[in-house]
Design a protein around this nucleic acid. Structure first.
Lengths: 335, 335
DNA sequence: TTTAATTACGTAAACGTTTTCGGATTACAG
DNA sequence: CTGTAATCCGAAAACGTTTACGTAATTAAA
């Protein structure tokens, strides 16, 4: 056990050159199976692991990708991360995670710090507080990037999204079928395509059924939890809607609380459905009808796309990947 | 803009040696302020950023730490990560995150893959499904490590925990003061010191007030959410406790659900308190009395400890850092 | 048998830094 | 004028890989 074990050490012990060792370890066709086996067994015996820095320096591959998201404390993103990690592990890659907390400054600071070859590529879901398209237009040709869920539409990169418009339309129709005629909308992600698509699906479904969308029926998301609760209560008192369509799961707790405080029965007095990836939705009382995005699969798919780019594959592929969300009907919109 | 910008390029343009450039960039005392300024301004002008791989290879510093935790989809851990990231950013460090999903095999696989110099140190909160002390005993002298919240006690490393025993004792007394005499315990993290300390604090508080702990009053955590709900319902039906002490937040939703399904009024029929880091605790109905750990500060403190080790400081310091949780009394244990 | 192709391995340069060591210049005391 | 110290800088080696290129031995084709 004299000193660290590197390829030079392996080469010495086997009386071959370090080039041969390196090639053998990388399973090169230039090396005979006999030699490869000698190298592999000794490497295992000495518990050799390649030095990532040296490898990276020479080959310009870091075996690392970055994930930049608003927040990990969110069921959608934590599931997506899980999906990303699975693929990364398959490729032997490591995952750096950066949380922007919906702050565009942070977002730019993080990405800028990754442009010097620290990572091979970036997966991101952009923050909601601003739509700074110009920045990303420059960024995307400096480093391989894939956007998921919260995307910028004009960019020529892989984008993994869900059928926000369609599922919102479908979900709204579900409420209408259940007899609702005054459906309020709890509006989140207003500045992003995803948020607007959800709202549009809701509006169009109303219109298709002869109902009208009204600004009075819309509650806009606030970072302050208490004011969300208050706004929903005010909505009930002033408009008396018979349903709530929540576009983000952050509205769920205040919505339920508002109903209980105002003695409104779900689903008798008011029906509720929400975009939601919490497994506890079915444990709420009453259980919550949800639009559930395939968060894990989104992360999975986004990571696959990134590795396509990193491996120079999938050149001609369609870069707009749209996965299907599912409407899970439960008691909160029941008869 | 011919080619990439590295220190060689800077050296050429300034007609000085690369050694001087390198030292100037690192603010070495060997370089005159005049030269430093020339280097700094050109570096900024050309938007130079050092190559991390080269720097790492030569200096054996990666400017990266790893965080290995059971799961990011948990308020405690996501807050802790936030605390860690804050410190990491201050030191110019990057954060790799690995989720074990409470699987010891994963845990070992991840840590092993980090021993080749990919990171400078590791922050971890161990998984709950096993107590494999031997493994860590070997690991801790191969790479700087700091444990937080879920720790192994016998290891000679920095450990950041909370006053689990004391706060459980206090919280149990709170229930007793509110008139409870049959307090059930929802038991999580049984294999870890933290989990056992919480249980012990509960037991000792009961005993100190002439009450007795009984196995019949304990519900053990199950990975299956549905069975937790079922077990709590069974507990109510067979034992009719007048309070629930939940040691992990995963029990909250099933506990509330069980009460509603069994038509038990909180806090009239049964009082509930729980270890919990969800900001939505106060929005539950009724609002939940919680034992809240300073999750952000724990992450913060753990990261600080790691950087102490990395910078060879804090040799004589006490390595057992215990932060205070707080008992936040709300309606669920009210009169 | 000669020539070309294939196989298997080695030499050495390169990746972009950091750092040791030494050299040159200047300042200042003796 | 000499010697010493302080200041500032450069040459070159190192970190551990990967890879372009060369070469010898073997095999296949002619």
């Amino acid at each position: 056990m004299s000193g660290e074990v590197n390829i030079k050490r392996l080469a010495q012990e086997l009386n071959i050159s370090i080039a041969t060792v390196s090639k053998a370890l990388n399973d090169s066709y230039e090396i005979s199976l006999k030699t490869k086996n000698r190298v592999w067994t000794l490497a295992k015996e000495l518990n050799y692991t390649p030095n990532p820095a040296a490898s990276n320096l020479r080959s310009n591959k870091t075996k690392t990708i970055a994930v930049i998201i608003p927040c990990v404390a969110n069921n959608f993103f934590s599931l997506a991360i899980k999906g990303i990690e699975e693929i990364a592990r398959q490729y032997g890659y490591h995952v750096l995670i950066y949380q922007t907390h919906e702050d565009t400054e942070m977002e730019m600071s993080f990405t800028n710090s990754l442009l010097n070859g620290r990572v091979d590529g970036i997966l991101t879901s952009v923050s909601s507080n601003e739509y700074n398209n110009e920045y990303y237009k420059n960024l995307v040709n400096k480093i391989p990037m894939v956007f998921f869920d919260r995307v910028y539409e004009e960019l020529d990169t892989f984008k993994v999204t869900t059928d926000d418009y369609q599922i919102s339309f479908t979900a709204t129709e579900h409420l209408i079928e259940q007899g609702c005629t005054k459906i309020a909308y709890l509006y989140g992600l207003e500045k992003l395509p995803a948020g607007r698509a959800r709202f549009l699906g809701y509006c169009d479904a109303l219109q298709a059924h002869g109902l009208l969308a009204a600004e009075d029926l819309v509650v806009h998301y606030s970072e302050d939890e208490a004011s969300n609760l208050q706004n929903i209560k005010t909505l009930f008192q002033e408009q008396a809607p018979d349903a709530l369509f929540s576009s983000i799961e952050e509205f769920i707790i205040p919505a339920y609380s508002a109903c209980q405080e105002l003695q409104l029965q779900i689903p008798k007095d008011v029906k509720i459905l929400s975009f939601c990836n919490m497994s506890s939705a079915k444990l709420l009382n009453p259980s919550l009808t949800t639009i559930t995005q395939p968060a894990f699969e989104i992360g999975n798919e986004a990571a696959k796309c990134l590795f396509k780019v990193l491996n120079k594959r999938g050149i001609g592929d369609d870069k707009d990947i749209v996965l299907q969300s599912t409407l899970i009907k439960r008691a909160s919109t029941g008869g």
